[in-house]
Design a protein around this nucleic acid. Structure first.
Lengths: 223, 223
DNA sequence: GTCCACATTTTGATGAGTCAAAAATACAGT
DNA sequence: ACTGTATTTTTGACTCATCAAAATGTGGAC
């Protein structure tokens, strides 16, 4: 009973909170799920009911859907495949970090666990992918990442960018261009609610001001 | 209108003569096609009629099916992807040549042309895959391979094994074990119709007798 | 409390790909 | 020519995943 690509995509979307930028709450609303998958709302409802019958999700009508233990594990493995593949494409195949998403999206459903492990081995068993997203273990476990965003970290304090939560090519290229990729050391100089912006001092005293929406997608760790 | 995996599989099967060991004749019979794809005969008929409407094959009821120019190109590209992937798995990922078929079978339908080209580049643009099967160019062209099998090559004459036409794990392992992989130098000592067998002298004076069916799957070139 | 806007679920239908079994066809052998 | 066997096509039905649009439920504004 290997799950179809479709099932894997639903589980993955629920696992990732269906693209919610807010902390993944317990229940993912149907609308959000349908949106994340690019299907009509009714389609998501139907599919989720099927998944519930297979014991992969818990479904509360009119409230939303959450993964069961089994569903979580399956989803984590899909995400693992995705992220290992992304890492492999960047490190071994010369892809840019903004070019790997679609390719990984396709491959994650067909590549064997064996090949994933080979890739993982060649990569030195990395803990995160090129975007800083954590790679679940083969058992489906993710090391919890205590993190803050540019919106919540202390001001005027050196921090390291560890993760960029957005797969949009244009955004990623912007981040790269301004040296804000994972690994870079920066400092948040100021936040301004009125102008909805955050001023950052990056490498070589470079200053850049970005919107709060963008700032919320950059996660950092104290240094 | 990118073709589905199913369409690609039908085209590939027709391209490869649906597993016929005989030289790929013009028309592939429906039964053979259905057999190669593991579907019911009626299913193949239905699908082939659809393919004919898309202009990918020419279909002669009760006679069989053949690829059009367009179908040939598409099929060749699928085969190209398959063989480049096989080569990549063996050379770069540490797979055995008997272990790559299923993985490539899955990946060939999802991997982008870009990734295939990257692999091809890393491999030094090989002309054949680990089994000696020729790799079509990105334009879908295969260099014609003038070849004989162990059944047709001259006796007591040194030849080089260039290709093994069978993906069966057990057979491939047998071939490997007896040093009959592509690249090996051998000599056919005798053929015997009565016993349906061929005696071969391989590396280090090693003798081995194989059936004619097996012998027909080993292609060689004069040296 | 009532009502309304919005999210969600239901309903009926569609397309792709498949099967089993019945009907039709081709062709080899007499 | 005729008949029987093997192959092929047709038929009717099924599953999966989807949509559009109608029906229904939920929760906030007043």
């Amino acid at each position: 009973m290997l799950p179809s690509s479709t099932v894997e995509n639903y589980l993955k979307a629920i696992y990732l909170g269906a693209g919610a930028l807010t902390p993944p709450s317990r229940l993912v609303p149907m609308g959000q799920l349908a949106g994340a998958l690019g299907v009509a709302p009714g389609t998501a409802t139907t599919m989720v009911k099927t998944l519930a019958e297979s014991g992969l999700v818990e479904y509360e009508p009119y409230a939303g859907v959450a993964l069961t233990k089994a569903g979580q594990k399956l989803a984590a493995l899909v995400v693992r495949r995705h992220r290992v593949i992304e890492m492999f494409l960047v490190r071994m195949m010369g892809y840019g970090w903004d070019e790997v998403h679609d390719e990984a999206e396709q491959m994650e459903h067909v590549v064997s666990d064996r090949l994933i492990d080979r890739m993982d081995e060649m990569l030195g068993r990395p803990e995160v992918d090129p975007h800083g997203d954590p790679i679940p273990t083969p058992e489906g476990i993710v090391k919890p990442q205590p993190m803050q965003s540019l919106l919540t970290c202390p001001l005027a304090t050196p921090v390291t960018i560890t993760r960029v939560i957005d797969q949009d090519k244009v955004f990623l290229r912007f981040i790269e261009k301004h040296n804000l990729k994972p690994g870079e050391s920066i400092e948040v100089e100021a936040r301004d609610a009125a102008s909805d912006s955050v001023r950052v001092r990056g490498r070589d005293e470079q200053r850049i001001t970005i919107g709060t929406k963008a700032a919320s997608k950059l996660l950092v760790q104290a240094r």
